[in-house]
Amino acid sequence: MAVIRNIHPLDRFLRPERLPHMWCPGCGIGIALSAFLRAVNELEEEGRIDSRKIVFVTGIGCTARASGYVRFDAAHTPHGRAIPYAMGVKLANPDLIPVVFSGDGDIVGIGGNHFIHAARRNMDMLVIMVNNMIYALTGGQVAPTTPEKIYTTTTPWGNPERPFNAVTLAWIAGANYVARWSVTHPELLKNSIKKALLMEGFRFIEVLSICPEVYGRHIGFRSPVELYTHLRKVVKIRGKIRPLETEYDWERGITLGEFVVRDEPGFVRRLMEVVKGGKA
């Protein structure tokens, strides 16, 4: 039998025997996952987090396969259900740190209702939504995040739908922390994850990603590098602007940055307070 060696500095957070992973060449999910693992690694080295308390929860989709590659307590739940699963984890043991890491279809498509209600409750969890703007695992169907007019296999004449701007959605639903980054800027993403991991309440980070195999082909890019380079032109980092001023438009640009940083009590603290107040 083959022996698998730990080699890469992040291998202690991975299951190296399962690598190479199933994602296509140039897929941005691995970049996002790498940024998350570096954030955890740095926080642990700084003595600010115990990685054994992390529960890594995913739904269904390309991104959701990440739960099988990380060496944390983890779950690969039914499609769209990562957020309520993570809610149960947190409420049953508030010492745990649930991190939902899943795709745009999973989180704001089939799981959209859970998303807005978890944000409304300020449920204590970090949600990292890797947005490749397409249903990739099933072969390239339209997603709630697909830009208008773009060809997909279920909108062969162009997408007639308007996409979600997940930043405004998370903000208006009440999240404590809302940011949007891109795999083209992995260090900014990592810093944002480090900050969000240590906060309470509902924290949401959207990560624009590249799907060269499906989305890239749909819009005419022939290689991962071409799509990566193009996405770098689409995204625009803006400081100190409000969620409503962010743009989500493949032509005009997609705004990156940190848009909401609030310090409102998370659901766990609220629940404890009311239960104690009722002298239960």
Binding site: T77, R81, Y85, G88, N93, P98
Partner: peptide, 19 residues
């Protein structure tokens, strides 16, 4: 929870958290 789907998934998560 916001619906029964959330309820069942929450109890599954809670069970793995030891409850």
């Amino acid at each position: 929870s916001e619906d029964e789907i959330a309820a069942i998934n929450a109890i599954i998560g809670a069970s793995w958290a030891g409850a």
